[in-house]
Write a protein that binds this DNA or RNA. Structure first.
Lengths: 144, 144
DNA sequence: CTAGAAACATTCAAGCTTTAAATATGCTCA
DNA sequence: TGAGCATATTTAAAGCTTGAATGTTTCTAG
């Protein structure tokens, strides 16, 4: 409680959360300009190529059931398609449509402008990246 | 798009989000052990002393309307009280009840054990803190 | 081969979060 | 003083997220 070390760690957690919010707000702002919600934009951004629902969920740091919800919306908008997975019949293969690909390009362009990490120069960003990678426990977030 | 710098920044955003999730999951896990939800636990943790709704919302990195929602729950459980603010009649003064204070102590004890930042030693945590403070734009997250 | 365990995706209920709008109070300045 | 704008909180609607089932398919040990 009054242990300085514990207090510092709590404060640090607050900062991580604060920066995550700042990033999320940044995405949300740009998303609405394209008629997307923040969650939809995040999914679109993470869809770097064909992948399964689970892979997408992992990239979004969310539960698979949430990915189902978001992909439903994107599919209704004709931006994405759920195809049969080539080798595993349990899985779906998510593929961007032509419209989806085009919109994703526009989204990435918007997201790249005015980075939410502009306060850090490239070197500082590399240091931050190293620390975050070290702090993140591989299997913990979603099945600890 | 294929610009290496932009890709690195997107990846970095993903890592920030991932660590924030890891921290949130850590809180959630401990919260349920005390009959609290993650949001309620976060509010309780941030209530370091009497404060207004807006102050609490800022500490939680959320909208004031969300703080209203969470404080409603805590108040119904008798953990917190909304009192008149001593100098500003628009504002509420949030104060922990005796039960609330006791539960907060137990929560902090749980949260301190098994830190979600255990992957970093104290020195690394200080470096991380410095970078995060630099990356967070003071007025940005909540009023664009 | 086959039964059991594990993995992928989905559904549903419950709870969280944001936005916009509404109410109440405070502040500034002519 | 009082009009106009800013701030604190709340409400309602829409959307997000999680966790616990469920159905299907795959894997693994015998």
């Amino acid at each position: 409680m009054t242990e300085p070390r514990a207090i510092a760690e709590r404060e640090l957690c607050g900062l991580v959360n604060g920066l995550a919010q700042q990033i999320a707000d940044h995405v949300r702002e740009r998303a609405v300009a394209l008629g997307l919600t923040a969650a939809q934009a995040t999914a679109l951004r993470e869809l770097t190529g064909p992948m399964t629902m689970r892979e997408l969920a992992e990239r979004m740091s969310c539960e698979p059931s949430n990915a189902t919800f978001v992909v439903d919306k994107l599919e209704k908008q004709g931006l994405i398609e759920r195809r049969a997975h080539p080798t595993d019949r349990r899985a779906k293969h998510l593929v961007l449509t032509e419209d989806g690909t085009a919109l994703r390009e526009r989204l990435l362009a918007l997201l790249t402008r005015d980075s939410p990490l502009a306060g850090l120069n490239p070197k500082e960003q590399r240091v931050l990246q190293g620390l975050l990678e070290q702090a993140i426990v591989p299997g913990a977030g979603r099945r600890g």
